[in-house]
Design a protein around this nucleic acid. Structure first.
Lengths: 148, 148
DNA sequence: TTAAGTGCAAATATTTTGCTGTCAC
DNA sequence: GTGACAGCAAAATATTTGCACTTAA
């Protein structure tokens, strides 16, 4: 197979290489899972999917890699209102923060970008003299389909 | 501004009584701790303080009471960017949501309210057709004293 | 070569649950 | 009196760590 999925040079790999971070098969698998995920995954789900690419991969490697990516600002950690247990969810950090809304009835997660949110962050930085590194706006409520 | 708490103690008790919730010595102790707290407390800290009022109180009673208060919308659960472990922090829910900003270096938590935040919530409700029950904006960054 | 990374097993941390006896109403 | 609540112990869930072996650079 000329193009195995581990060969897809994702953005993560390039960014980590730039910083001199060592690349391993396990990390490639985990990065691949996160980069191609179509929904928010928690550590267990990432482990399960990564094992399809590299069956021997260990749970602690997943946690260590998530920690690495967090420290390098490549992923965001979400709580999603703890709709389902206390696990954290992870997603690639994009240029723009987005807001997560969790439906308390059906569990659906809706994402949302907002200029007003960006303005709010700037206002906070100005008024408080804080430098914002990460901003997480999570909302719990009822989506349009679940309202009584 | 943080904990601008001008309300009379015992407000929780009154609100719970209104709803026909049974009042026990243990609950009174826990409510008292949360109502008089001057900083955000996690479950273990609440337990420790509540035991000064009622030494036999159990950890599971604390969790069950916190759950009760959450369900009745009397307290908010915070993560505070998981600055110190994975525990949750609790605070009385006030009329107005406030934003929590955690300094990633010194750990200081700063709170503030913002009209723009209120506007943003209204905008989200309108544009997405969601009904917001709880909105949590948590920010990690560096406070004015900790900036390099 | 060798520091960084990994697997494994055990430890920690946080929260939840089953059960039985107790107490607020 | 009775249904809600509490204490206890054990389980469940989520994450971290120590250590010896392996591997990327």
């Amino acid at each position: 197979m000329p193009f195995a999925n581990t060969e897809i040079p994702g953005r993560f790999q390039a960014l980590l290489a730039e910083r001199g971070i060592r690349m391993t098969g396990q990390r490639r698998a985990i990065l691949n899972v996160i980069e191609t995920a179509k929904k928010h995954l928690d550590a267990s789900q990432i482990l399960r999917r990564a094992r399809k690419l590299d069956p021997a991969i260990d749970r602690s490697t997943v946690y260590r890699t998530l920690d690495l990516l967090k420290r390098h600002g490549l992923i965001d950690e979400l709580d999603l209102m703890h709709l389902d247990g206390e696990a954290h969810y992870y997603e690639r950090k994009l240029n723009r923060d987005h807001i997560h809304m969790a439906c308390l009835r059906c569990g659906k997660i809706t994402e949302f970008v907002s200029d007003l949110f960006e303005t709010l962050k700037v206002q906070i930085e100005k008024e408080c003299g804080h430098r914002i590194v990460v901003a997480r706006l999570e909302i719990g409520g009822y989506c349009s389909r679940c309202q009584t």
